[in-house]
Amino acid sequence: MTSTTGKPSALARLFGRAGKPSDDGKPPPGGRSPLYLAFLLGAFALVGAALLATGHGATEGPIAERMKEDLLGSLALVVPAELHDNDLVHDQYAVEAPGGEPRTIYPALSGGHVTAVAYEIVGQGYGGAIRILMGVASDGGLLGVRVLQHAETPGLGDKIEAAKDDWILGFFGLSFGNPPKEKWAVRKDGGQFDQFSGATITPRAVVGAVRTGLEFFEANRERLTKARQGGER
């Protein structure tokens, strides 16, 4: 591409080899042609993409499996295994929650009858949203409440985690009526639930969220407890 005058043209300067390769085979001082470099990096990218595609293909299945196991693990904490003979995740469906958003319901069926339902609720704590999973028996009694995710102050608000404190286990067996609906609040607000040292906002948020969760159950009791066939969507 070098012009005959011996002085490389502008185009040649961009795309040609800048000089003769030296004797030891090393690239000339001017560096390789941009076209060659484009090809080289493109080839790298292509090989890399192919590798990634293969990796993705190989792990896709196992990863989906693991995610489901996780969810089942959490659900097992709020819905005892002896209450159902179905696959809670498989039978999930959505119900419109207050505010119009769909809420995923995991029904526990035993012999085709709904024995309990589990669903997720959200409370507003000190450090933002607290995601809570709750299981409710068909009679409206709480089977279990667990915090899935929160950003409460460690050491203060994180006593709502079952791993750190028994507090959250105290919901077991409670329902509207036990205690009465107006007692569903922390003690400071005239309710019957303990707050813990130094923190009121976090337990208040959890109690409030569970209360709205129970209200949701009451409002939709009919739909939630109606027997369903597995797989109905």
């Binding site: 042609s33 941009p34 076209l35 470099l37 484009a38 493109g42 080839a43 790298f44």
Partner: peptide
């Protein structure tokens, strides 16, 4: 890859 390689070369 192609675009960046070429760009770097230039």
């Amino acid at each position: 890859g192609v675009a960046l390689g070429g760009g770097l070369g230039v």
